[in-house]
Design a protein around this nucleic acid. Structure first.
Lengths: 125, 125, 125, 125
DNA sequence: GTGGTCTAGACCACT
DNA sequence: GTGGTCTAGACCACT
């Protein structure tokens, strides 16, 4: 489900972007799946169509969607390029988080255990 | 050293906030150290004093600084409250990053190794 | 072979136009060759017949095809008029590209060599 | 001078994009030059500010401008990355044009001469 | 019906 | 004053 928090300080179109991106990474949206139309989603979320459009365009630019004029927007499979870019991003995220944890003197063992726990969790998809 | 990137899209006062917060966590700023005055720092960074003021106020609100009227702003030691709140935040960060890495099928071993590497690095402070 | 990319943001009828034009210039289609009928091509490419029609009309307007009612669409040989118009267009293209290359300080020799290479390539038709 | 043709079928924001891009490549706009503000340019060209904004954002994304919130938009020097990308693009342009010229049986010598002429022209900047 | 572009106009954060 | 975001609503091309 795509959800948006109107009160949040992060722009709506960024929230939409992240929402869709995550659904693709999680496999909830698969290659060539049709996205709801701009107007449809706008009506559903009671958000202006322009804002949806902006999010879809950004997703297209970043390689997550493709649009067929007159047809709609569709999910672009996770090509190698996007995947390796995603991987680079997530490794930086891990590194930053770990380095901040170290600063706070969180014992290494606690971090390792947390990572282990995340990886052994049941899949909730 | 406090540095600010005017070109960045993250607000200057947030950059200041993060800068000071990090220096406190890293021990570069210690309990009861005197912060540069608003005007001093504004002149140094060629930034509007209002912006510095806003950052200091936020740092005070979050428990990193305290202000003595007529004297200036001072570092509030890392009290238990702030520390445990920081720790909670960083653990969430680690969890999020790890869970995203798992989604991208980055092998657990790669993440564990990365964490290990971060913890064994020389301190560059 | 006529091929069309539905994902591209250039209109399908323009893609068709360019495709046919190129095949005529390349000699794959010759004077008085019969084009596939609108319906035939529409079925082949799983594209709306209106779109094919639009492309054929444009090609007729620009002097690449002629239509015989009840018979179909046919290739109009590369008359002098079309050819000289085409030549004018391509020379402008070369000029623009060269002038932009010069702006970017690409050495003249590199451009000349590139042109030479293109002209010495085997014909892949 | 930035100029726009409202009648053209290419979107206004793309025309603006190309205009500014070219002025940067030509050296008419130099590193850290201040661009006219969104509202200023909108008034000057009698175009909606949103459209200017869209063009500026695209130019920022592609590495031609940077924006300082509350200050304005500025020219980003031609970093190596942008330059090499530009060069790649222009070489493809030359190649395409040459290959089309060959198709039209334009003699190689004519193309080489044209390139030579472009490179020997006086600088009109 | 669908995406793409654009206008008019508002409000916000930052300086 | 400046950029950034958003709404409301219109019109266009393409299918």
């Amino acid at each position: 489900m795509i959800q948006v928090d109107l009160r949040s300080r992060t722009p709506i179109y960024e929230q939409l972007f992240e929402n869709v991106r995550r659904m693709i990474l999680e496999g909830q949206l698969e290659e060539d799946d049709k996205m709801p139309s701009v107007r449809e989603l706008a009506a559903l979320l009671t958000i202006n169509p322009n804002t949806i459009q902006k999010a879809y365009k950004a997703l297209e630019r970043e390689g997550y969607l493709y649009s067929v004029s007159g047809k709609g927007n569709f999910v672009k499979g996770l090509g190698g390029q996007v995947l390796s870019q995603e991987k680079r991003l997530v490794l930086t995220k891990v590194e930053d988080a770990a380095s901040e944890a170290r600063l706070l003197k969180v014992p290494k063992e606690e971090i390792l255990a947390l990572v282990g726990k995340v990886y052994s969790e049941e899949d909730r998809t």
